[in-house]
Every structure is written in structure tokens, then in C-alpha cells.
Design a protein around this nucleic acid. Structure first.
Length: 265
DNA sequence: ACATTGACCTGAGAGC
DNA sequence: TGCTCTCAGGTCAATG
């Protein structure tokens, strides 16, 4: 689930629940995540401190600690956050629990263990080391940069949109929605699209991601003419046609062959 | 150098 | 019903 809009919703949830509460202890409940800090490193960074803010770059979430340190969480395919007080509210598959002095807890959950928990000393450097491109919603990202970065790919436009090294934050679901809104075929070659198409893809990217955040990624709240609420087996395009489900660049793509004709040769 | 594939891990849901 | 199989929204190493 967690692409840029999902992580942004998690961040806001974190921001409204978990700031400025002294951390009494932590429990690291799984040590076989994709990447995970050592227990003592987490303890040293967190215990006795409090969270003072929150940030996001692409699909990466950063909880500000005091003293220029960050708790970095990546959610893989199945992660989310849950703030709770009573044990019976404890989420399933919790991998990290932060215990606050006030008796509340913050749980990091990740069923499939494809997420990461790290302590980061220098956020800017970390993002650079990870090789991440600019955040897809970075207000300083312009259409020219977007287009130049993505059109350099010889892959499909869908794969290019999902490359975190080019633009950070877009995954399988939202690449489908962006392509749908811009009426571009997901299998089109990125380096064959003209500047008109790139301009539309750029606009669609901002629009789709912002709309998803505004809807708090609840499919029921998405505009009726979005693909997402119909993005399932035997789904019907808002145009009335049948959606096609096909593997494109190794990922399951949903698209409407009637609407998405741009880039098809 | 770059693009694509398969592996990683677990559980839900499809299909028999 | 119950068992097996396939697949899932992310990344990364290995392969072509």
C-alpha cells in the first residue's frame, strides 16, 4: 500500500498523535525486516527523548528526534502506524513499539517484513546515499526537470514513473492512476513521448498525489472519474469500457485501452 | 550502463 | 470444507 500519499497520511497521523511525549522505552519485535537498526542503537536514539517533528521524502518517513537524529521508517508493502493506549488495541504484526511515559504507545506494523527501521544521523545525506530523486510533490520540481529525468529512461513510462532514483514516491497503484489521467498507455516507451505528453504527466502526477492525500487514500472518497475505485479484477472504466489487467515491466498494471491511447505506436 | 527478472516474507483469496 | 496455489501496492541482487 504505502506509496507517497499513504506515507504522507501516516506522517500526518504521527504528527497529530505522537509528538512531545517522553519515550520511556521501546520494543523491537522483529529483527528480520529488510533493514533494521540494532536494539541498542534504537534505544540510545529514542529512550528518554521525544519526537519533535516529522518529514517525508518519497515513501520514506522520518520522525525528528532531538539532537539532529531521525527515526526512519519505510513501510514496504504492508506497513502502517498505530497509536494506541490499551493492549487490546495493539495492531497485528507489530514490529516496533514505542512506549511513551504517558502510557500511550506507537506501533509500527509490517506484516510482510519488507519494511525498514533505521536511525539516521544526517537526513539529507541519507536521502542522497539512498539515491532518491526529488520528492514527487516537491514544490520546486518543475515540468522540465520531471520530463528530462523520466524521458531519459528507455523503459516503459510506467516503470520510469516508479523509479525512485528519478522521482521519489510513485508506486504501482499511483503510476496507473497518473497514466490514466494523462491518457497515456502504461506500456509506452518513456523516451518516445513528446513534451505535450510529459507536461500532462507532470500535471497529473501533482493532481493525483494531492487528491489522494486530500481523500486520505480512502478509495470511497476518490473522485468518481478516478481509476482507483475501479482498479480490480473485472473493473469497469468510468468511460464504460472494460479495464485491462496486464503485467507491464513486471508489475500488474490496470488501464483502459480505449482511454489510454497516447504513446501507442 | 542500463533494463528486466526473481527473490525476499507472510497471509488472503482463488480455485479445485 | 479444506487444501494448495498464486499473488500482493516495495526494494535489491543477479541476470541479460
Amino acid at each position: 500500500m504505502p506509496e507517497l500519499p499513504d506515507v504522507e497520511v501516516f506522517r500526518r497521523y504521527f504528527h497529530s498523535t505522537s509528538l512531545h511525549q517522553r519515550i520511556a522505552g521501546i520494543a523491537l519485535l522483529a529483527h528480520d525486516l529488510r533493514r533494521v537498526a540494532r536494539d541498542n542503537e534504537l534505544e540510545a536514539a529514542l529512550v528518554g527523548k521525544e519526537f519533535t517533528g516529522s518529514r517525508r521524502h518519497g515513501k520514506y518517513f522520518f520522525a525528528d528526534l532531538e539532537e539532529d537524529k531521525w527515526l526512519m521508517l519505510h513501510f514496504g508493502m504492508t506497513g502502517y502506524l498505530k497509536y494506541f493506549r490499551d493492549t487490546d488495541e495493539e495492531p497485528q504484526h507489530m514490529r516496533l513499539r514505542v512506549d511513551f511515559e504517558n502510557g500511550a504507545h506507537l506501533g509500527y506494523t509490517c506484516q510482510r517484513k519488507l519494511g525498514s527501521i533505521l536511525v539516521v544521523e544526517n537526513m539529507t545525506q541519507f536521502i542522497k546515499d539512498e539515491g532518491l530523486g526529488p520528492d514527487a510533490l516537491d514544490p520546486t520540481l518543475d515540468a522540465e526537470t520531471f520530463s528530462a529525468t523520466l524521458s531519459a529512461s528507455r523503459s516503459t513510462v510506467k516503470a520510469a514513473l516508479m523509479e525512485q532514483e528519478r522521482i521519489a514516491g510513485i508506486g504501482n497503484i499511483y503510476s496507473d492512476e497518473i497514466l490514466y489521467r494523462a491518457r497515456v498507455h502504461p506500456g509506452a516507451r518513456a523516451n518516445r513521448l513528446n513534451s505535450h505528453v510529459w507536461q500532462d504527466l507532470f500535471n497529473a502526477t501533482g493532481e493525483v498525489l494531492q487528491t489522494a492525500i486530500d481523500c486520505e487514500v480512502d478509495p470511497e472518497r476518490f473522485p468518481a472519474d478516478y481509476l482507483l475505485p475501479h482498479r480490480h479484477k473485472d473493473g469497469t472504466c468510468p468511460c464504460g469500457g472494460e479495464l485491462v489487467q496486464r503485467k507491464i515491466s513486471g508489475r500488474t498494471a490496470y488501464f483502459c485501452p480505449a482511454c489510454q491511447t497516447r504513446g501507442v505506436t
